[in-house]
């Protein structure tokens, strides 16, 4: 459901293939397999949470472009994910223009 809600909020003009992951471990596997130029990452997940995914990406030196999308709106959570290399934090429920403005800010062609 979280993924469905996010996908609906992506800019319709954005020409991309989407790979979905059910938890952090699956997301990391997809990233390692080169399936993601941009990753939208939740924090509260089973098996491996979003903080752990960011740590793993950082440790493996993967050149990541991760946008955290989370219901965890504590200021400390936002600080931490930025420190761990996330480029942006978008709070849930996600608004389409919040995503669009982050993508535009980083020069993503929409």
């Amino acid at each position: 459901m979280a993924r469905k809600m996010l996908i609906k909020a992506l800019p319709s003009s954005w020409d991309v293939d989407i790979t979905q992951a059910g938890n952090g471990e699956e997301a990391l596997a997809a990233y390692r397999a080169g399936k993601a130029d941009v990753m939208f990452l939740d924090l509260t997940m089973p098996v491996m949470d979003g903080f752990q995914v960011l740590e793993a990406l950082q440790k493996e030196g993967l050149n990541s472009f991760v946008i955290v999308v989370s219901a965890d709106i504590q200021p400390i959570a936002q600080e931490r994910v930025k420190k761990l290399g996330a480029i942006a934090f978008i709070k849930k429920p996600v608004a389409s223009d919040a995503i669009e403005s982050v993508l535009k800010q980083y020069g993503v062609a929409l």
Partner: peptide, 18 residues
């Protein structure tokens, strides 16, 4: 859906507690 709705609501509660 219930899980995601609850997750979002919980985030708001957690932030207040923090």
């Amino acid at each position: 859906a219930m899980q995601e709705i609850t997750n979002i609501a919980m985030g708001q509660a957690g932030s207040l507690l923090a």
